[in-house]
Computed example of a mutant assay.
Amino acid sequence: MHDFLAAQAAAGTQPWTRLWLEGHGTTWRLAADHIERHAETWARALLD
């Protein structure tokens, strides 16, 4: 979603540009980082 918002904001597409300017890109990047950091732990918990 972060990459999508960034691309759409760069193209000037609404409402994505407004959302990007309001900080939604940062929120999605932080969420993705969190998921990536904990993916292995969650996979072990779910699959063991």
Rank of each mutant, 00 (worst) to 15 (best):
L47W: 05
I35Y: 08
T17V: 04
Q14A: 02
A43K: 13
W16S: 08
G12S: 00
H38G: 05
R18S: 14
A10G: 12
A45S: 07
T17Y: 02
E22K: 11
W16H: 09
T17Q: 15
L46N: 06
L46V: 02
H2V: 00
A32Q: 14
A39N: 13
L30D: 15
A39S: 14
A32W: 11
G12D: 01
I35M: 08
A43T: 13
A9S: 15
Q8A: 13
L21C: 01
A43H: 14
E36A: 13
L46G: 12
L19F: 05
L46T: 04
A45M: 07
A9H: 08
D48I: 01
R18E: 04
Q8H: 13
R29M: 04
W20F: 06
Q8L: 02
E22V: 00
A9P: 12
G25R: 07
A39G: 08
H2M: 08
E36W: 06
E40F: 02
A43W: 13
M1F: 08
A39R: 15
A10L: 04
W20H: 13
T17M: 10
D3G: 07
A45R: 13
A6V: 10
L19E: 06
I35K: 04
W42G: 07
H34F: 15
T26V: 07
F4V: 06
E22S: 12
G25T: 03
W42P: 03
E36C: 02
A7Y: 07
A31M: 09
A10K: 08
F4E: 03
E36Q: 15
L5F: 05
H34C: 14
D48G: 14
E22C: 01
T27K: 07
A7V: 00
A31L: 13
L30A: 15
D48C: 12
L47N: 05
A11L: 11
G23R: 10
R18M: 05
F4K: 04
H38C: 14
R37C: 00
D33Q: 13
Q14E: 11
A31V: 09
Q14H: 03
E36S: 06
L21K: 03
A31W: 04
A32H: 12
H24C: 07
P15M: 01
T26G: 10
T41P: 05
W20D: 09
A6K: 12
R44L: 05
W28P: 00
L46R: 08
A45C: 01
W28D: 02
G23H: 11
R44C: 00
G25D: 11
A11N: 10
A39L: 14
H34Y: 14
L19N: 03
L19K: 00
F4Y: 04
E40Q: 08
H2W: 11
T26A: 06
A7W: 05
G12Y: 03
E22A: 14
D33F: 07
T26M: 04
F4G: 02
W42R: 10
L30R: 15
A45Y: 12
H34E: 14
T41F: 15
G12W: 01
A31E: 10
L30K: 14
A10C: 03
D3H: 12
I35S: 09
G23A: 04
A32D: 12
L19P: 01
L46Q: 09
A31D: 10
H34V: 07
H38L: 10
D3C: 08
A7R: 14
R37H: 06
I35Q: 09
M1Q: 06
